[in-house]
């Protein structure tokens, strides 16, 4: 009918107030708004419904919507807090907040633990670690003999599984990460502090005081 107001804002399903999200995360309000721009881009890339589907997530990571990857699957599952097969805006912001440079190491450590606890048993088992090493090698087209893979897993377990019960529990994990901080390198995304520059939001707010 040609009578749309340019002021009418239609948000994606599951949209949440940036002020609320900023209060619960490491982001400022304008960073959340910039993330909304990124979210819209991702969530309309294939299935245009304003929700991030697995294919869209894979496409954003690999430029290939069919690329199967154990680790991308794990990240997707952790982001999909409601476990309904899609990532909504609030889930996206809360999960990405873990990767913010200002987020405490303890939160990053806990997130990485859940990431690597493939079967949600409350500990990282040897078989899970081996599965992840094999997945990484296959993804990277690296070929190592069975003996070497076993040695890498054994060696890591020797260092991490301090009570020697064949699994890494959360306390052992925290201790291991403290001794090997490089493990958490990928849990911080410097991009997140420049997000307002990369994805400027054109919404003007009366309150833009994004003090820390």
């Amino acid at each position: 009918m040609g009578c749309f107001s340019s002021k009418q804002i239609k948000h994606t399903p599951g949209y949440e107030d940036p002020v609320l999200l900023a209060s619960e995360t490491s982001f400022t309000v304008s960073e959340v708004e910039a993330l909304y721009e990124l979210f819209k881009k991702l969530s309309f890339s294939i299935i245009k419904d304003g929700l991030i589907h697995k294919e869209e997530f894979q496409f954003a990571l690999f430029r290939n919507s069919n690329k199967k990857n154990l680790f991308a699957d794990r990240i997707f599952d952790l982001f999909d807090v409601k476990r309904n097969g899609v990532i909504e805006f609030g889930e996206f912001v809360r999960s990405l907040s873990v990767f913010h440079p200002k987020t405490p190491e303890s939160e990053k450590t806990a997130f990485a633990f859940r990431l690597y606890d493939l079967r949600h048993t409350g500990s990282i088992e040897r078989v899970e670690l081996k599965e992840m090493v094999l997945a990484l090698l296959s993804e990277s087209d690296l070929h190592l003999s069975e003996d070497i893979v076993e040695a890498i897993v054994d060696n890591t377990f020797k260092q991490a599984d301090s009570n020697g019960d064949g699994k890494i529990d959360e306390e052992e994990w925290k201790d291991f990460v403290k001794r090997n901080p490089a493990i958490l390198k990928n849990m911080t995304l410097p991009y997140l502090v420049d997000i307002t520059m990369s994805f400027p939001s054109f919404v003007v707010h009366s309150d833009t005081s994004d003090a820390d």
């Binding site: 990857n69 690597y116 992840m132 997945a135 260092q159 291991f176 490089a182």
Partner: peptide, 25 residues
Amino acid sequence: RPSLMNAFELISTSQGLNLSTLFEK
């Protein structure tokens, strides 16, 4: 020596865990 590699450090290099690609235009 590969046997001294830390398995978790190895895993953390996965492309599937490199979320910075989400921000590429």
